[in-house]
């Protein structure tokens, strides 16, 4: 086997290895990108409606950027709920995805009945509970 052909084949082999790695890297990048803009039915809404509350049922607001919810007058959305903390949670809407994070509240934030400890992605129809107030993502 002439040496030239062997050298060429070796370089082709290495090129194929790198083509493979490039494809995997691209696929991983696309995979990571998918998480943010899933599209279709799993896309979260950015409107939040209070569905159960002593005094605020029916209150609706849209989340654009970051919205802080709590009992304080300085919160973006003020809750009249004695179990809510001054600054209870933060909703962030980014590229069509809605995320909720608890701001160290005393009584916790519940998504679909489960207390969250880390920032959690919300989807259309998820129930968000703070104290006695229940909100729904639409």
């Amino acid at each position: 086997m002439p040496e030239l052909i062997l050298t060429l084949l070796r370089l082709i082999f290495l090129a194929l290895v790198y083509l493979f790695i490039w494809q995997v890297a691209r696929a991983i990048a696309r995979h990571l990108g998918l998480g943010r803009s899933e599209g279709g039915s799993r896309r979260a809404g950015n409107r939040v409606v209070v569905v159960r509350s002593d005094s605020q049922a029916g209150l609706a607001f849209a989340v654009n950027g970051a919205t802080v919810i709590g009992r304080s007058d300085q919160a973006d959305v003020k809750l009249e709920d004695p179990y809510a903390s001054e600054f209870h949670l933060r909703l962030v809407s980014q590229e069509g995805a809605l995320t909720v994070s608890d701001l160290g509240s005393t009584n916790g934030t519940y998504v679909n009945g489960r207390r969250i400890t880390t920032p959690t992605a919300l989807q259309r129809g998820d129930a968000l509970q703070v104290g006695k107030t229940v909100m729904e993502v639409r």
Partner: peptide, 17 residues
């Protein structure tokens, strides 16, 4: 499938060498 091709290609190179 690409990885399988690479493996076969590698074995071919060894045989040719």
């Amino acid at each position: 499938t690409g990885a399988a091709v690479l493996a076969a290609f590698g074995v071919t190179l060894v045989n040719l060498a």
